[in-house]
Design a protein around this nucleic acid. Structure first.
Lengths: 132, 132
DNA sequence: CATACTGTATTAACTACTTAATACAGATAA
DNA sequence: TTATCTGTATTAAGTAGTTAATACAGTATG
C-alpha cells in the first residue's frame, strides 16, 4: 500500500474509497485478491480502523469487494464489475471536464493541445515508471 | 440570479464562490458591475446572509470583487484578474482530467472521441442556444 | 487450550459548517 | 429629518457528518 495523501476537505473514508477505485480501474488489483485487514490499512494510513471499515462497507455495498464472515475481504471476482467501474470512471471524468471547459470561451483545438501537453508533463513526472 | 442547486456535501459558501467563479470565467459579469447585496442573494438562494458574506469575504480577498464602505460590492475592474482566473480554471480542469484518465488504460484517440461526443451532447442539451 | 488475528456493531466525542440574533456605521431617498 | 437600504463584526447555538473508543463473535494457528 503506497502513500495516500489525504486532503483535509473531503471525508477520509471517501478518499480511501477513491484510492481503491483507482486501483481497481487501473488493474492494480487481481480479481479475488485478498485485501489487507481494516486494522492493517488503518495503521499504514495513520487513520482509525473504523474509517477504513466505513470505506469497506460502502465498497462491499457496491460489490467491489466481498467478505466472508470473520475473513479478510477480497476483491470481486466479476470482471464485468471492473469493466463497469472503468466505464463509469471515464464517463464521469469526460463529463465533468467538458462541462468545465464549456463554461469558458475556448476552442476544441486549444483544449486538445492543452491535454496533449499535460499528458507529456505528467508522463515525465512519472519518469516512465508507471508501476508503484 | 439563476437557480443554484447546492449539493449537501460541500460547504454552501464554497458553492456560492464556485457559482461566481463560473460567472466570471464565463464572461457573464461585466467588469465593475454592481452585485446584489448579501441579504438579497441570501433571500434568493434561501440561505443565511452570513453564509453569503463568508463567500464574499473570500472573493474580495481574492480580488474578484471589491467593496467601498457601505456600498454594494462590485466586480473587479481588472481584466488581467479575469484572465488569470480563466487560465487557472482551465489549467485545473485539464490537469485533473489528465490525471484521471491516466489512471486507466485508454488511448489518446479514444479520449478525444469521447470528448467530442460529450461536447455534442452537452450542446444539444442547451438546445443550440450557445454563442456562434 | 491460548493468542492474535479477522469483521462488525454500538456509542461517544469531535469538528467544521451553518445559522441565528444582534449591533453598528454609513449611504440613499422620500 | 426618518426609514430603509448597504457592508461588517461578534457571539452563541445548533447541526450533520466524521472519526474514534470499545466491545463482541468467530477464525486460524500453535
Amino acid at each position: 500500500m503506497a502513500q495516500v495523501h489525504f486532503n483535509s476537505r473531503d471525508p477520509i473514508y471517501l478518499q480511501v474509497i477513491d484510492y481503491f477505485r483507482k486501483q481497481l480501474v487501473g488493474d492494480e488489483l487481481i480479481l479475488g485478491e485478498e485485501l489487507p485487514s481494516r486494522r492493517q490499512i488503518a495503521r499504514q494510513l495513520g487513520i482509525n480502523p473504523n474509517t477504513v471499515q466505513r470505506a469497506f462497507s460502502e465498497m462491499e455495498e457496491q460489490k467491489w469487494i466481498y467478505t466472508e464472515p470473520n475473513r479478510p475481504s477480497r476483491v470481486t471476482e466479476d470482471p464485468a464489475m471492473i469493466q463497469k467501474l472503468k466505464q463509469e470512471y471515464v464517463e464521469k471524468a469526460v463529463k465533468e471536464f467538458v462541462a468545465s471547459i464549456q463554461t469558458i470561451n475556448i476552442t476544441y483545438e486549444e483544449i486538445s493541445e492543452l491535454i496533449a501537453n499535460e499528458i507529456k508533463n505528467q508522463s515525465n513526472k512519472n519518469g516512465g515508471t508507471q508501476d508503484d
